[in-house]
């Protein structure tokens, strides 16, 4: 008899706890309701430095010291025309 009561209590407890589990009912989708649901943020995978150099042509040159040296316009030393302390 005691064992039966314990089994009944255990079963009742499991029944109560089952109420705390996630609902199996699917959440409404965006097509079903567009009420006050915040838009899901879009996760953008940022390119790595290596990826960037492939797609951002500016970086091909601006990360390459020798290429910058080779392509730089020669700077004419400007003649100082001002006189005195600025």
């Amino acid at each position: 008899m005691k064992k039966t009561i314990q089994l009944l209590l255990l079963g009742f407890g499991l029944l109560v706890l089952s109420g705390c589990t996630r609902s199996t009912t699917p959440a409404p989708t965006a097509t079903e309701s567009v009420g006050n649901i915040a838009p899901t943020p879009t996760i953008v995978m940022l390119p790595t430095a290596a990826d960037r150099a492939d797609t951002d042509t500016c970086l091909n040159c601006h990360t390459d010291k020798q290429r910058l040296i080779d392509t730089a316009k020669p700077e004419e030393p400007a003649e100082e025309e001002s006189e005195g302390v600025g």
Partner: peptide
């Protein structure tokens, strides 16, 4: 030097501001 003025470091590309493209 002219090249020094515009040489971009690898560290910049992994910094927050480096996430944007040049253009």
């Amino acid at each position: 030097e002219p090249w020094e003025k515009v040489l971009i470091s690898a560290d910049f590309l992994t910094s927050v501001h480096g996430e944007a493209t040049c253009v």
